[in-house]
Design a protein around this nucleic acid. Structure first.
Lengths: 113, 113
DNA sequence: CGGACATTTCGATTTTACTGGAAATATCGT
DNA sequence: ACGATATTTCCAGTAAAATCGAAATGTCCG
């Protein structure tokens, strides 16, 4: 992963609505969520949401797939993996960064909101 | 680490100059680098650099310390650790994200440019 | 104190991001 | 083909970020 790509990914996540959105999709898992369901969950107007979905898609962090009338979005775990990998390799002083990430709050167990 | 803090940290890193700058400070280690040395290394005008240093400082990712005439900046590894921890916990699907971060390019061994 | 050095703050400009209503596109069922 | 549904694109308006020269601040030394 080269640094312009990293900057794009970071920019995509560096926004309240989009970070929420991405987390939601991570929790939704492989099955993903429709744009409408996401809009309901986040309370963001359709056109704004569409803008944010496009940003995340352009950054390669989420994927889009049509399922009849709905567009289903899902998190791209591999891309996120690459991003975190880059940060750990290049921005953590090599040695012991994030060997213990367990003091953070655990992911809320929410299945299909 | 709560999500507004995460957004601030991500915003701080989501900029080419600042990502370069932060990487430079990570490589510089505990001893840090003066603003002037950083400006030389990155080729950014003083006033622009100062702006970016302020952004990273405000986000808590770097620290400032005066050493006679120079201001020495150094990376805050703990803050970065928290950020990566948050991303792994909340944005990586819990399970196997970034268990192998070794395929990324290794940090270039550059000591005190 | 005065001058050189290191860095920041100010101010003006340009660029880029975010927002949300209204119109357009795509898909489905009848 | 038509009407309903799901979502995006368009468009303007507002807000925030990035840039950099010039002036101000802080620090040292003689």
């Amino acid at each position: 992963m080269d640094s312009p790509t990293v900057v794009n990914a970071l920019s995509a996540l560096a926004q309240e609505h989009r970070l929420d959105l991405f987390r939601l999709l991570v929790q939704a898992g492989e099955q993903g969520m429709s744009a409408g369901a996401i809009a309901d969950a986040l309370g963001v107007p359709n056109s704004s949401l569409s803008f944010h979905l496009a940003q995340l898609t352009k950054a390669g962090l989420i994927r889009q797939e049509r399922q009849s009338r709905s567009l289903i979005y899902s998190a791209d775990y591999a891309a996120m993996n690459d991003l975190v990998g880059y940060l750990m390799e290049n921005c953590c002083g090599g040695a012991g960064c994030s060997t213990s990430a367990s003091e953070a709050e655990p992911v809320e167990e929410r299945k299909r909101a």
